[in-house]
Amino acid sequence: MSVAERVRASTRTPTRRWVGLGAAAVVWAVLYGVNLPFWDWVVYDRLGLDPASRLGSGVQFFVYDSVKIVLLLVGIIFVVTVLRSFMSVERTRALLGGRREGVGNVMAAGLGVITPFCSCSAVPAFIGFVAAGVPIGVTLSFLIASPLVNEVAIALLFGMFGIGPTALYVGAGLVIAVVAGFTLGRLHVEKWVEPFVFETRLGGKVIDSTFGLTWDDRIQMGIEEVASILRKIWPYLLVGIALGAGIHGWAPQDFFTRFAGAGNPFAVLVAVLLGIPLYSNAAGVMPLVQALHDKGLPMGTLLAFMMAVVALSLPEMILLRRVLKPQLIATFIGVTAAGIIAVGYLFNAVIPL
């Protein structure tokens, strides 16, 4: 008997089904809520590692981020798969594509701003949106904006540098996310997304239509999709997070001030190239930005560096490789980096120091 047949043969009542889903949601929320304090306790209190050391912060980062991203993958992919079962991929694209795509890019970038994800944490939502049939360009606008512009970075930047640089940062981040996503969408890069992302499966088989599915079928689809995607991406997940843990919080200040100083006309380009291999969120890199600003580095160069760190991190690219082909990853990096470099030079012209 197939999985679908076993589900249909089940005698579960609607009450038991919804109670089970509610209990699963509560367990998910509790695990997500205790994830950070639990690993802080294990790594710092039980193992005795120093939170200020590279080893202590790296170990904590790896275990905490691994669990967090797995939980996000489970929650987001399950919910999106169930919702997708009510609407075909073709219908979703018809609603969000074409002339509405520009509006979709703006909406996706705005959604990214209010979701405080780092680049790797935004990947589960990205996978869910692509699987739901949302146009790839619109989804990429979310992927860029979510780590690039968030409320924590806005608050810190305002406190350190005032309203002018903060407003320019927010505006530039949104423009980069919208324009880059729209440009990538116009290039029709869907062919560079791995085919399994677009498939709808039930009982291990691809199905062409979701019409007539029961709630039990839709829930089973969500469970199967979570298991399928986790099986496909877990090596990339662990490698990406391990790399992020190894370089977490690290940046060579002396090298930066020497080769990306105010006197170098290629400073913005150097800052972006230096930022891509690193990994942090906007809040984590802000103290470095302030320290380098105090040493006389221009604001545009520093913001270009910060944007490259949070929007184009190497661990994020490793995670994305399982769902995107190398051609799309390279195009995504090129288009986004070009926007960041342009903004960096613009900032340097408007706010030299």
Rank of each mutant, 00 (worst) to 15 (best):
S2W: 12
T11R: 15
G22K: 10
G22E: 09
A23Q: 05
W28K: 11
V34K: 07
W41D: 07
R46I: 13
S57F: 11
Q60K: 12
Q60L: 12
Y64A: 14
Y64E: 13
V67G: 08
V70Y: 11
L73M: 13
V79C: 12
T81A: 12
T81M: 14
L83H: 00
R84T: 10
M87R: 13
V89H: 13
E90C: 01
L96N: 11
R100N: 13
G104W: 03
N105C: 12
A109G: 03
A109V: 02
G110K: 08
G112R: 00
I114C: 05
T115M: 12
A122F: 10
A122S: 11
A125V: 07
A132P: 00
P135R: 07
L140Q: 09
F142V: 02
F142W: 03
L143M: 10
I144Q: 03
A145D: 01
V149G: 01
N150G: 12
I154G: 14
L156R: 09
F158L: 15
F161L: 12
G162I: 07
I163D: 06
I163C: 05
I163M: 14
G164C: 03
P165S: 03
A167D: 02
A167Y: 01
A167C: 04
L168K: 04
V170A: 05
G173N: 04
I176C: 12
A177T: 04
V179G: 00
F182S: 00
L184M: 15
G185H: 01
V193Q: 02
F196Q: 08
V197D: 00
E199Q: 14
R201I: 11
L202E: 04
I207C: 13
D208R: 15
T210V: 11
W215Y: 13
D216K: 01
D217P: 08
M221D: 09
M221G: 10
M221A: 13
V226W: 09
V226H: 10
V226D: 11
L230Y: 14
R231Q: 15
R231W: 15
P235R: 11
Y236D: 05
V239W: 01
G244F: 03
G244E: 06
H248K: 15
H248G: 00
W250N: 11
P252I: 03
Q253H: 15
Q253M: 15
F259C: 03
P265H: 03
F266H: 07
A267N: 12
V268I: 06
A271G: 06
L273N: 04
A282G: 14
A283P: 09
M286R: 05
P287S: 12
Q290Y: 07
H293W: 05
H293P: 05
D294V: 08
K295V: 06
K295D: 12
M299G: 02
G300M: 06
L302P: 06
M306F: 10
A308K: 07
A311D: 08
S313Y: 07
L314D: 08
I318M: 10
R321T: 03
K325C: 00
L328E: 09
I333H: 02
I333P: 02
T336Q: 01
A338L: 06
I341K: 00
A342Q: 07
L346W: 04
F347W: 10
N348W: 11
